[in-house]
Nucleic acid binder design. Sequence first.
DNA 1: TAATTATGCGCAAACGTTTGTCCGTTTTTA
DNA 2: TAAAAACGGACAAACGTTTGCGCATAATTA
Lengths: 348, 348
Amino acid sequence: MRSKPATIKEIAQLLNISVSTVSRALHDHPSIGLTTRQKVKKLAGELNYEPNQTAIFLQQGRTLTIGVILPELSESFFSSAISAIEDSAYKRNYTVLLAQSHDDEQKEKQLVEKMKNHRVDGLLVSVSKNTSSYQHFENLKQYNIPIVFFDRIPAMQNIHYVACNMEIGTIEAVSYLLKKGHRSIGMINGPGTLFASGERKEGYIKAMIKNRLKFDPSLIVTCDLTEAGTQQALNELLASKRKPTAVVTFNDYVALFAIKHATDLKLRINQDLEFVSYANLPLINYMESIPSASVEQFPYLQGQKAADILLDLLAQKHQGVAEQTAYYKIIIESQLIENRGAADIKGK
Amino acid sequence: MRSKPATIKEIAQLLNISVSTVSRALHDHPSIGLTTRQKVKKLAGELNYEPNQTAIFLQQGRTLTIGVILPELSESFFSSAISAIEDSAYKRNYTVLLAQSHDDEQKEKQLVEKMKNHRVDGLLVSVSKNTSSYQHFENLKQYNIPIVFFDRIPAMQNIHYVACNMEIGTIEAVSYLLKKGHRSIGMINGPGTLFASGERKEGYIKAMIKNRLKFDPSLIVTCDLTEAGTQQALNELLASKRKPTAVVTFNDYVALFAIKHATDLKLRINQDLEFVSYANLPLINYMESIPSASVEQFPYLQGQKAADILLDLLAQKHQGVAEQTAYYKIIIESQLIENRGAADIKGK
DNA sequence: TAATTATGCGCAAACGTTTGTCCGTTTTTA
DNA sequence: TAAAAACGGACAAACGTTTGCGCATAATTA
């Protein structure tokens, strides 16, 4: 019952050979004779020897570890992403060092420090909502630690990122509703300060233009994403002159608040008032009274792409490829997905 | 634009002092004079010096890292747990190395190996469904790496674990339905092979005894947790002689399948047929047509407890406390939570 | 058979830290 | 004022690996 893991040194001592020989034997180096090699491997097996990654790092200058900093691990969107990241990392023999910022800029900074301490080879980041300065990310460049951002991208120059463009999905969403016969379509958007709100609004407008319809600004209302705010926003829409028969909501949370409120108002979901949303929540598939369609943002795919890019960068770096001057900027197009199972008027 | 992070050595060279002095200065060791200390800290700041954790590990024999191996990161239950774990670890200056087994025994074994390579100080594990041999965990004991299991506990002796007991919650669930006036309560349970199924059945029976009622075995049917299986199970219950007016389902997925099916059968949810389930899914709060109550399993709490236990063990170990012979076995009692917002007959 | 090439292995440095020990000055104490 | 204590700092070993280099001995070549 040893208390410490076996080392290469001990093996060397026990076999009366040098540590370098042991090391080489374990790596099948050609300059080591067959018999020695076998002896070493046998003993290593018996001692349950495992190479000490930490020591290897010191030698090689890399940890085979990538850091991941996300706002909220329990959010379904991010947990899908982290799952993808872990899968990608595993395939390429990397390990994931995980941390969450809770949308706190100060904590995010500390986490970046910690990742530097641990000498992660690279970093995957979805930026905190409240981060205003990006100096902590800039610093990493001097450390030669590549970062790939995803989903929440900071306003920085010369960065790698993977993001999802909501515009296309929004155009699809609005067009979908138009095709179903709706002539007045409302939108409960997020705060104007959010980049994401802009994309949705743009998409809405472009869809109208594309379908040669007039854009009525009063049909887009903003809300603060709370339940109360959502109720108010829906009330506003329903009170408007061109009372909408369909609503596009900023995200699934807003959608569910709105659906609840609409139900309270005795409106039949997707009949009197049809809903389309953006997918944040899983298992929408399991229930009725859900939006009839959702704009999918592919969190798993985003995480996967981001991880693959980072791992590619690391592989290049390790092979001594010259500092890249080009930056990956991957845009995943959002896509409208009809929610089969939703109550539906099957309009055509 | 340095390509490598600054080291203590460089600082020493630049200042024409020894590395030990630099190290001590940075740690505010009393034997270093004020002026030298200040010079060192100043230069360290300018060079953006960050201690190399990896090197420190080699010295100190610990990585300040805990490994976490879970079946599925994207499962809401586990992502809540991992969020709690990260929070606890962060508070005590630890970092989380994360991996998922996808319920694959082989992969789980490899992950344990990898964690050993990285020399994590301790391990948090929720065991894969398909794991049959626990040798890879046993081996860790020889490495003196403490493990704390949670939620899914292996059948091993002498382990630390945190689990949630479903029995109490089930008793509460059945009693709750009885109090609401139901006289025939069905249960759609999981496969008999699952430990979790046993607990639920026990709870059901104890609730009947407690309320001095006769237990009718035909009211408990098992299913394979698929949608088709659930439908069949529900049909079975509804066809039974004592057609139940309420059903306890194995988990939220089963509940949602059953609710969908019941709706198709024109049954009014929680009126003609009342549902109680076990909480796996979030945002149940956002929708109607959900079980009127859920047995909560507190994933965040489980993760938190497990992490705290592990970190306590590590702290003890670091302070040289003798090998503990006692094992933490924490049982969290499940608890029935009424789902406000669910359609309800408000029976009394 | 002598010169050359392989073969098989050991030596030692290096990666970045921490820490026990030792040593030369300065300051205090008697 | 001489001896003792306190101060400030340097030396070197250690943590576990990898790897360039050198050096015997054995095998090949001419």
